[in-house]
Each structure stands twice: as structure tokens, then as C-alpha cells.
């Protein structure tokens, strides 16, 4: 019987680990990379708490889609709140040579979109918001309603405290979210939050950001990678 099982190609050594990895992987949903339909402008919005790396992630995606996919990419920033936010984006804009529009108010979004109507992908950067501040979330909602994003990625730092995690998603959930994007994977060794989110929400994970380098440190999420991260933590080996 054993021989038969073995001959069928199931390895005995490490089989528990394999099994675990597979079953963890099956828990996690991923979206794959952003879908782009050339010739049709799709708006991709990034939202999330302050300091999680929304702008950096956005620039990584914008440059990957510009250089690797040869698509026409544009940027809109609605973050006129934080000092230096627009300037930061302008620096990147100058490097990549992309059109950037600034929207101070939700009612400026239609104009910005009109100017970018020749773009295949438009990335919308939003101001970091405290999930505790209801008014801020309402503002965010107005920006999203004006820009009608095809995808809204909630950006979450992998260093987020577990006790803060669910409240963040719940509060930001007042706007329609359809992707999780995890950042700062290189700043922690505990990745249990992937499973916590997978257990509570059926929202797929889009990208994993693994460092500060633009555009290299951003990869499309796979269930295997996530399972490996979670298990790597359990095995105490660096991943």
C-alpha cells in the first residue's frame, strides 16, 4: 500500500509541510496582476491608512505597466493634504515621463480624467486616511465615486498590528474595496495577517511589495508565495 502511494508520486518526506502549504494556499485568493485593456481607460485607485506605501506602490505599478507592458499610463493624485505628497509624485513623474493630474476636490476628477482619456491605465493616489476618522473616509468616498475605479486596492502594511487589522478593513470597507495590496513584507517576519484576512474577507490579494526599490520590489501575489511566507515563519527559516 505504501509503495503504491509512493509510486503515485506523493513524497513522504516533507509531506506534512507540503500538505499544509497546499491547504494554506487554497485558503488564499489572489487576483493576478492588474488587468489592462489597451484603448480603454481603466482607473486603479489605491487607498489605505497613512504611511503604508500607497504612493511607492503606485509608482512601482505605473512603471511596470509603462516599461514592461508598453501601456499608456497616467496618474492622478488626490493627496493634496500631506506636505510634499504631490512633489514626491512629480519627481517620479519626471523620471518616467507620465502625465500627472492633481485633483484638490472630488469635482476636479472628471476634468483630470478627461485630460487622461488617451491612457490605458490611470492610477489614482489618495491621501492616507485614519480609519478612525469618519469624515476622512467620507471624503475618500467622494473621490472614488467621482473617479469610478475599475479596481480599488486597499494597501495594508504587513507590519500592521493584528488588533488593528480588522478595524482598518471594516472602516475602509465603507468604500467598495476589491483588492488587498500588502506592503513592507521585508520589514517583518510574521505574515499571519494574510490568513486572518483570508478568513474574514473574500477579497483577493493583488500584489506584494517586498522593499523600497522602484519598480523591482513589487510582485503579483500567488497563493503559493503567501503560503510559503506564512510557513517560512512557522519553520523559522528566512524566506
Amino acid at each position: 500500500m505504501n509503495d503504491e502511494i509512493l509510486d503515485r508520486g506523493y513524497p513522504r518526506s516533507g509531506s506534512m509541510g507540503q500538505l499544509l502549504q497546499r491547504s494554506l494556499a487554497s485558503m488564499v485568493k489572489v487576483s493576478g496582476p492588474i488587468e489592462a485593456i489597451p484603448g480603454k481607460t481603466r482607473v486603479i485607485a489605491l487607498i489605505g491608512p497613512t504611511g503604508v506605501g500607497k504612493t511607492t506602490s503606485l509608482v512601482k505599478m505605473a512603471s511596470q505597466y509603462t516599461y514592461d507592458h508598453g501601456l499608456k499610463v497616467g496618474l492622478i493624485t488626490a493627496d493634496t493634504y500631506r506636505i510634499g505628497a504631490v512633489e514626491q509624485l512629480k519627481i517620479f513623474r519626471d523620471i518616467i515621463d507620465l502625465p500627472l493630474e492633481v485633483a484638490n476636490q472630488p469635482d476636479e476628477i472628471p476634468d483630470a480624467l478627461a485630460k487622461l482619456s488617451d491612457r490605458d491605465l490611470v492610477f489614482l493616489d489618495t491621501a492616507g486616511r485614519s480609519p478612525q476618522n469618519r469624515r476622512q473616509i467620507q471624503d475618500l468616498r467622494a473621490f472614488l465615486e467621482a473617479s469610478k475605479p475599475a479596481e480599488t486596492h486597499l494597501v495594508i502594511s504587513a507590519t500592521t498590528k493584528n488588533s488593528d487589522l480588522l478595524p482598518i478593513v471594516a472602516k475602509f470597507g465603507l468604500v467598495p474595496i476589491n483588492r488587498f495590496l500588502f506592503t513592507k513584507l521585508d520589514e517583518t517576519k510574521s505574515y499571519g495577517l494574510f490568513l486572518n484576512l483570508a478568513a474574514h474577507f473574500s477579497i483577493p490579494v493583488s500584489y506584494l511589495s517586498t522593499g523600497q526599490k522602484v519598480p523591482d520590489d513589487l510582485e503579483s501575489a500567488s497563493p503559493e508565495k503567501i503560503a510559503e511566507l506564512v510557513l517560512g515563519e512557522a519553520h523559522g527559516r528566512p524566506s
Binding site: T56, V59, S63, T66, Y67, D68, I91, F92, I95, I96, D97, Q212, K213, V214, P215, D216
Partner: peptide, 20 residues
């Protein structure tokens, strides 16, 4: 800085090279 790789990419794209 963090955009070193990006600048290299931009340079090469301007020279008409593909990222591959």
C-alpha cells in the same frame, strides 16, 4: 536612492531598448 532602478529603466526605454 530607491528610484535608481527606475532611472536605469527610463534611460534604456528612451534609448528604445526593451526591458527584456
Amino acid at each position: 536612492d530607491q528610484a535608481e532602478g527606475l532611472r536605469a529603466l527610463a534611460r534604456e526605454a528612451r534609448q528604445g531598448k526593451f526591458p527584456f
